[in-house]
Simulated assay, not measured.
Amino acid sequence: MNTTPPAITNGDLLIAEPYMGDTNFERSVVLICEHSQAGTFGLVLNQLTDIHLSDVIEEIHPDLPLFVGGPVQQNTLHFIHRRPDLIDGSICVVDGLYWSGDFEQIKRAVNLGTLTERDVRFFIGYSGWNEGQLDAELTQKAWIISRITADFLFDTPTNEFWRGVLKRMGGEYKSIAHYPVDPRLN
C-alpha cells in the first residue's frame, strides 16, 4: 500500500471526498494559493455566505458576494481575480488566476465597475494546514486533487462547482459527482 501523499502545487484544487465528515469542508473545493514545507494556504471556492462585501467594507458600493474561504481567521479578507492589469502586486496562482494585490486598487476598480464578480471573488477566512497536516489528510484519501482554469472558476455557478469539477475530471470522478449528500436517504 502506497502511503506517500501526492505532490501538491500552487493552483491545485482539493476536492472534498463525498463523505469526508468535516462540516467545514463538506462538498468543498479548495484552491491552493500557497504550498510549501512550512504549510499550505487555500481558499474554499464554493461556500457562499448570506452577506456581501459592502456589508464588511464601507467604501465598497456594489453588492458583490462574499464567500467563506475556510475556518481559519474568519476576521480576515482575501481575494482571487483574473485582472492583474488592474491590480498591482498580484500573485499568479495558475495561468490566468491571481491572488491578492493592492487593495486600494481593488476598491477603486470595484466601485468604478471595471472589476465585477465575473473577475474577482472575495473570501472571509481561509483554509490552512501546518507542516505535514495536509500530507496526512491526502494519505487518508480525504481529498481528490485536480486543476481548473480561471474561466471555469468564475463561470461555473457556486452551487454546481463541486459536481462540475468532478464531472470535468471524467471516469470514476464523474460518478462520484452524483453521490447523495446523505447516503441513508437514498
Rank of each mutant, 00 (worst) to 15 (best):
A142D: 14
L166D: 10
L31G: 04
V72L: 10
Q133E: 15
K141V: 07
V181K: 14
V165A: 11
F41V: 09
N10Q: 12
I87F: 05
F79L: 05
P62D: 02
G42W: 01
F41M: 12
P183G: 01
E17H: 13
F41E: 02
T9G: 05
S36I: 03
I8L: 11
D102Y: 03
H61F: 08
G132S: 09
G113H: 07
N186L: 15
Q105R: 10
Q74W: 00
N130C: 07
H52D: 08
T4K: 13
E26P: 05
I176T: 09
G42N: 00
N24Q: 06
K174T: 11
E34I: 03
L14V: 11
L134W: 02
I15D: 08
G21E: 09
G39T: 06
L14P: 11
T158F: 03
D155N: 15
G70M: 04
L97Y: 04
R168G: 12
G96F: 10
E137Y: 02
G96T: 10
D50F: 00
I87E: 07
D119G: 14
L153N: 05
L48T: 03
D85V: 05
L31E: 06
L115E: 05
A16C: 08
N111K: 12
F152R: 07
L134Q: 10
Y173Q: 14
P65S: 09
I176R: 13
E104N: 13
F41L: 15
T116E: 04
L14T: 10
A16M: 12
N111F: 09
